[in-house]
Design a protein around this nucleic acid. Sequence first.
DNA 1: CGGAAACTTTGATCTGGATCAAATCGCGAT
DNA 2: ATCGCGATTTGATCCAGATCAAAGTTTCCG
Lengths: 240, 240
Amino acid sequence: MDVARSEVFDAGTLVACRSCQARHGVVCGALSSSQLRELGRHSLRRKVDAGSEIIAQGSESSFYSNIMRGVVKLCKVMPDGRQQIVGLQFAPDFVGRPFVRESTLSTEAATNSEICVFPRNLLDRMISEAPELQRSLHDQALKELDAAREWMLTLGRRTAEEKVASLLHLIATHAEPQTATSTAFDLPLSRAEIADFLGLTIETVSRQMTRLRKSGVIRIENFRHIIVPDMDELERMISA
Amino acid sequence: MDVARSEVFDAGTLVACRSCQARHGVVCGALSSSQLRELGRHSLRRKVDAGSEIIAQGSESSFYSNIMRGVVKLCKVMPDGRQQIVGLQFAPDFVGRPFVRESTLSTEAATNSEICVFPRNLLDRMISEAPELQRSLHDQALKELDAAREWMLTLGRRTAEEKVASLLHLIATHAEPQTATSTAFDLPLSRAEIADFLGLTIETVSRQMTRLRKSGVIRIENFRHIIVPDMDELERMISA
DNA sequence: CGGAAACTTTGATCTGGATCAAATCGCGAT
DNA sequence: ATCGCGATTTGATCCAGATCAAAGTTTCCG
């Protein structure tokens, strides 16, 4: 058993696929019942505290996972410490980079989370055996690519205020089902993490949040809890 | 024959797959010879002048293509005209968004180019029939995703000088095979396009180019031709 | 309950890159 | 050649967001 496997698998518990939230997700939804049973035998549930790393940048990882609960951030850091969040993933997304062992980014739990971990070798074999699974993962990759490009527009061309509004919109959209126009959610990210996602400083993020609050677009309770009375209003801040 | 098809296919000539540069590319390299023959029968070569659009943002496209020659840019524009280049593709890359007809970005020739155009329906059918092709396209999508995330770091966290150096490095790397340390190439992008790739203005791009020139990292001939005497030097400007 | 550490907000000032303005260059057309 | 136009460079000034500094808040642990 290699290091990564022992690290990750030790803390886990056996999985019960039948009642799992990710049963119809990207990976498990594309498996036959015999494949699902096999994957289940080699998978473990694991809790991950907010802030703890799942896969380190530059390391070789021998496992993939599904997010069962919580939010996971994908992060790139430069040698001098500057860093940029390059993706956020929500349950029941798949996490991992098929076909390449060495990770070019670090994967870290943003909130207290739960993941379902399974061996890379096993899934790789299943990918080559199950076209449906390949297709499903291909589809997730393309969606992530669309999202990354959308975010490139935000990073390159939007103002600080538009950036913050974009982030709130992104999270509101992925968070719990909203009522007609109003939404409320807990931010899965600290101000520092928001800054790292938006290419800003934490002071600028804070100032723009209070601007949005003072202009009535959002209400803020206890730093982390956000209420958007009117999503259309928020969308207008983004100008597309 | 729908509009997009007639527009694109009319100007083309028949293809000769046997001697094609993209014969072993992402798409054609993954096909059986009978599939290749069938795809070839329905494909056409087409010249595209620099600046002309291949697929418009928001439009439905009924075809995919392979880049035979030249450089293609993927671009997002906002309603108010701000725009951001979100990807550059080089021969023999595949161009198109499998599984989704409507394009969220515009695809445009950056240089005079040549593409090989084939019907979406046909390739979609082949994807579902040929796991090897699915795998190959999945792989390209993941590579584009890696590239997009690398660029997010550049957009969010690098200075103007680092951004320009990053772009030169990117192009040098994808351009012609370099000698040991020195490289020379023609920029496929105007200053305005570089600005749209880097999230800067054209004045800032120009200033940073002359800074790099004055510091001896690059030489510039005729605006577009760049000589990098020492690639290591250029890499040092990027700080990773 | 107290107190320290971490996180967030707010204020003052600075600066990298934007904006505004004007040469300069190169190239195709006359 | 010369004109004219688009692309690029260069210069002067401005400003959005960074940086520096300090004061709340919240949490959590003894």
